[in-house]
């Protein structure tokens, strides 16, 4: 359940940003989670409810944007999208690849009130 650690870290970052702005709470937070990041968005949403209690995020609108994984094939050099880390290149069937995108766990933006 590392999603709880992630939710608590987000709370910590939001608390810092709110303090820096001299304001009191967050109205909206937008997260970016890659589909290869190893973070279950349902588990994160569940952990979120507990993690944000009595914090600046308690009443915040919570949005998650999903990033689709992508990789470059090291055999035929084509770029392709991945649903799973173990997907092969659709052009040549090779598994040797370099991941380009999909492992993001980011706070994109905050609306501070």
């Amino acid at each position: 359940m590392h999603e709880l650690s992630i939710a608590l870290t987000i709370v910590e970052i939001a608390e810092e940003e709110v303090k820096k702005a001299g304001l009191t709470s967050v109205g909206k937070i937008v997260l970016e989670i890659g589909n290869l990041a190893g973070v279950e968005t349902e588990a994160l949403a569940f952990a979120w409810q507990e993690a944000v209690k009595q914090t600046v995020l308690e009443k915040a609108e919570y949005l998650v944007e999903h990033t689709t994984g992508s990789a470059r094939c090291l055999s035929c050099n084509s770029a392709f999208e991945l649903a799973f880390i173990y997907d092969c290149c659709p052009c040549c069937g090779g598994f040797r690849k370099e991941l380009l995108q999909g492992k993001e766990i980011r706070i994109k933006s905050l609306e501070i009130l």
């Binding site: 766990i105 609306e111 501070i112």
Partner: peptide, 17 residues
């Protein structure tokens, strides 16, 4: 009075770790 602020962070959540 401090104004409502919109912050683009693009911050990696695991940055501290």
């Amino acid at each position: 009075a401090p104004q409502k602020q919109f912050r683009v962070l693009e911050r990696n959540v695991l940055h501290k770790n």
